[in-house]
Design a protein around this nucleic acid. Structure first.
Length: 277
DNA sequence: CTGGTCTCCTGATCGC
DNA sequence: TGCGATCAGGAGACCA
């Protein structure tokens, strides 16, 4: 499940493949994965998929990745649960069971970029690059550089459990279920703690934990639990360093207590009942 | 407005 | 072996 570290790893591995390449064609095998903002006609999908443009920049905010072209078009890729964005020399086979929804042909001789997403929680969004800032302003600040002040400002008066709040992309962008649990473990906060009961310095601790966990995960190429691969098909290595996620019932790496598991904000949540208060 | 719950979707896994 | 039930989860819709 791609969260910020996985999307950043995809961005970094795709960058050398895509920068300077010209989009010579796009095959949208499943049209309903592409959406355009209100007001934009659903015609001219080629234009919306950057055909004819030269890719000049790959930008990430939270879990979203934007491909930008020289003529100021943008296409945002959202991977959702099961999304894959991958480069390969040849176009992928046209087998419906692979759930490849869009294939871009890159020239000259720059191979192919493709988007697959079995569960279709992800999708593509076409934008003018001038509307990218406002599009991303609707999300919170990027979690890789989140400050305690930003977190406290967004969430400090909320009564929600802090775990639920960390998953809110309007407060901070990029944290999903895995890294929320890992950050709360590092900060030693119980996931059920109401936001409004955290003191100012606790928000600094939490923001620092979020940045630390995400930066370490980026450095390890993200977490591969089942399907995740970066833009060149490599698995991540951070799953071996998870302290709590997926480790319910196993010993806490700090104190050895059995890790607890429960449902919080509709998400499986794992924590150490001894270390996290 | 806030916060909780439902819904989308498919594949893996489990119990019988 | 096979089949149905269950679970996983990002994010927006929806409702109290």
């Amino acid at each position: 499940m791609p969260e910020l570290p996985e999307v950043e790893s995809i961005r970094r591995t795709l960058e050398p493949r895509l920068l300077g390449a010209r989009v010579s064609g796009a095959s949208l095998r499943r049209p309903d994965v592409l959406s355009a903002p209100p007001g934009e006609p659903r015609t001219n999908r080629g234009r919306q998929l950057l055909v004819g443009g030269q890719i000049t920049l790959l930008r990430r905010h939270g879990k979203q990745l934007a491909l930008l072209t020289h003529d100021r078009r943008a296409c945002i890729v959202q991977l959702g649960m099961s999304g894959v964005l991958r480069w390969s020399p040849e176009a992928p086979a046209c087998d419906p069971s692979h759930h490849v929804h869009c294939v871009w042909t890159l020239g000259p001789g720059r191979g192919h970029l493709w988007f697959a997403d079995p569960r279709r929680f992800g999708g593509l969004t076409s934008l003018r690059d001038s509307s990218l800032p406002s599009h991303w302003a609707a999300l919170g600040p990027d979690a890789l550089s989140i400050s305690g002040t930003d977190l406290r400002r967004a969430l400090g008066r909320s009564r929600r459990p802090v775990k639920a709040a960390l998953l809110d992309q309007h407060a901070l962008a990029g944290v999903g279920n895995i890294y929320a649990d890992e950050a709360l473990f590092l900060a030693r906060f119980s996931p059920r703690t109401p936001c409004c009961s955290l003191a100012a310095d606790a928000w600094d601790t939490l923001a620092c934990a979020v940045r630390t966990v995400l930066a370490q995960a980026v450095a390890a190429g993200g977490s591969t639990l089942r399907d995740y691969r970066d833009g060149e098909g490599n698995a991540g290595r951070y799953q071996a360093r998870h302290s709590v996620y997926g480790r319910a019932g196993l010993p806490c790496p700090t104190c050895g207590s059995s890790l607890s598991s429960g449902l919080l904000a509709q998400r499986t949540t794992v924590w150490c009942p001894a270390c996290q208060r």
